[in-house]
Design a protein around this nucleic acid. Structure first.
Length: 435
RNA sequence: GGAGAAGUGGCCGAGUCGGUUGAAGGCGCUCGCCUGCUAAGCGAGUAAGGGGGUUAAGCCCUCUUCGAGGGUUCGAAUCCCUCCUUCUCCGCCA
């Protein structure tokens, strides 16, 4: 959520930002509603002030009446005044109630519309229409070469019997995975390796949050109200399954004021993630790339606004480190305005080389949300001796486990069908190859 | 799941036969004074958010908020209802 003041004070910036995003958004109704809201608010406040004054006076007179009677005097005049005042402030109360009835729907309407307005892209976010306009920032390693016909990861996995998608579909439904044997172990090794690296080398605190969250949390990070159809919901309990650890971890500090000297706060969390992938049918249906449930290690930062773009660079580097240590070729792209996520001001995607696709495939998304999430979730910090201000929040995958798993199978496969385990995982795996 | 108790400002903690209590007192913190260091002492200040006015920074007016929402009333931290959370006891359970 943006500062509603932008609507009045920086309207041109807002209009340009929406245009760059390719978001057809008519601000006129919000602007009109906002003007009406402030007008009503002002009228209500004036009447409230009058009523408060009258009520306060009633209080004073009542005490005076008490004193007068106690002293044996007649308080008839005072009592008459009290009656008149009560009548007067009663009438004011009725006016206020009427105005409030008019204000309520307007307020809700503004709120509803405003929550649908996406973040303003940062000036360094390239302007473009869609993913074909995303520039490559840097490339690491070269696409893997094979002197045999490489297999896709779903065939490698099936042949090695390390995961079973058919039985997973029997247990749950399509697009769930059942990992077995060395596959289950590789999944766990990746989780441990990533968490150990981020907590040990990069200074993140490990957290393990709930994976079911309430509506306030989903709204705080921007999944609701706009993206409800992408989420699994436990309707009976009014809880939602998290699509990413970003949701519970960012909400750790919802409605809080963080002491300034505690920033930056850096969390690393492993969680399963759940996505309905509505509207994605037919795309990447084979293998582990697009699942309803997948594991992910997520990095989340709460930082001082002044340094948030430096923090985005280090966050991205922290995620890249994982790929480098696994010796998986990848590139970093900068999402252009037309491809940028709803809440983000700037995003780098890490894309790993996938031989079966013959291209790079997203494996991490690192974003700076500036104060967009912080304002929604009311996460602030107190600068030393200053007023509370919104923090900037950032997060990025560090990394998606299932896609890393797939990338290892495809990039590290051998002519004999086995898969060589990357050096850094061997202690975790207690093996140097599968098959 | 059953029974009982409680939810007040950064923290602790007063405050119910409703009326200058946005909230005593203490701690903490900030500024100043004092003490040749330290500790102690003295004085002042110290919640957040919204709207409006004004300014060079400042400041001024006003509304809202005492777990959340609703109700009663001229007026509610104080009364009523619903919900949430925490604690104690019982039950159940990995």
């Amino acid at each position: 959520m943006l500062d509603i003041k932008m609507l009045r004070e920086e309207q041109q910036t807002l209009i340009l930002a929406l245009k760059n995003r390719g978001a057809a958004f008519d601000l006129t109704p919000i602007i009109a509603a906002d003007a009406e809201r402030r007008e009503l608010l002002s009228a209500i406040e004036t009447k409230r002030a009058a009523r408060n004054g009258a009520s306060e006076k009633v209080g004073r007179l009542m005490r005076e009446v008490g004193r007068t009677k106690q002293a044996g005097g007649s308080a008839a005049a005072l009592e008459a005044e009290v009656v008149a005042l009560k009548e007067q402030s009663g009438a004011l109360g009725a006016d206020i109630a009427q105005l409030e009835d008019r204000l309520r729907p307007i307020h809700e309407e503004i709120n509803h519309m405003w929550l649908m307005v996406p973040n303003i892209p940062h000036e360094s976010t390239p302007i473009g229409a869609d993913e074909t306009d995303n520039p490559t920032v840097r490339t690491w390693g070269e696409p893997t070469e094979f002197d045999f016909e490489p297999k896709a990861h779903w065939d490698i996995g099936t042949d090695l019997k390390i995961f079973d998608l058919e039985r997973a579909a029997k247990i749950a439904r399509a697009r769930f995975a059942l990992y077995m044997g060395a596959g289950a172990r590789l999944e766990r090794a990746l989780i441990n390796f990533m968490l150990d690296t981020h907590t040990g080398d990069h200074g993140y605190m490990e957290v393990f949050p709930p994976v079911l969250v309430n509506e306030a949390s989903m709204t705080g990070t921007g999944q609701l109200p706009k993206f409800a159809e992408d989420l699994f919901k436990c309707a009976d309990d009014d809880l939602w399954l998290i699509p990413t650890a970003e949701v519970p971890v960012t909400n750790i500090h919802r409605e809080e004021i963080i002491p300034g000297d505690r920033l930056p706060i850096k969390y690393a969390a492993y969680t399963p993630c759940f996505r309905r992938e509505a509207g994605a049918h037919g795309r990447e249906t084979r293998g582990l790339i697009r699942q309803h449930q997948f594991n992910k290690v997520e990095l989340v930062k709460f930082v001082d606004p002044a340094g948030s773009y430096d923090e985005l660079e280090t966050l991205t580097n922290d995620a890249e480190t994982i790929l480098q240590k696994l010796e998986l070729p990848y590139r970093v792209i900068s999402l252009c305005t037309g491809d940028l996520g709803f809440s983000a001001a700037k995003t780098y995607d890490l894309e790993v080389w996938m031989p079966s696709y013959g291209s790079y495939k997203e494996i991490s998304s690192c974003s700076n949300f500036e104060d967009f999430q912080a304002r929604r979730a009311n996460i602030r910090y107190r600068p030393t001796g200053g007023k509370p201000q919104f923090v900037h929040t950032l997060n990025g995958s560090g990394l998606a486990i299932g896609r890393t798993f797939a990338a290892i199978l495809e990039n590290c496969q051998q002519a004999d069908g086995s898969v060589v385990i990357p050096e850094v995982l061997r202690d975790f795996m207690r093996a140097d190859k599968i098959g």
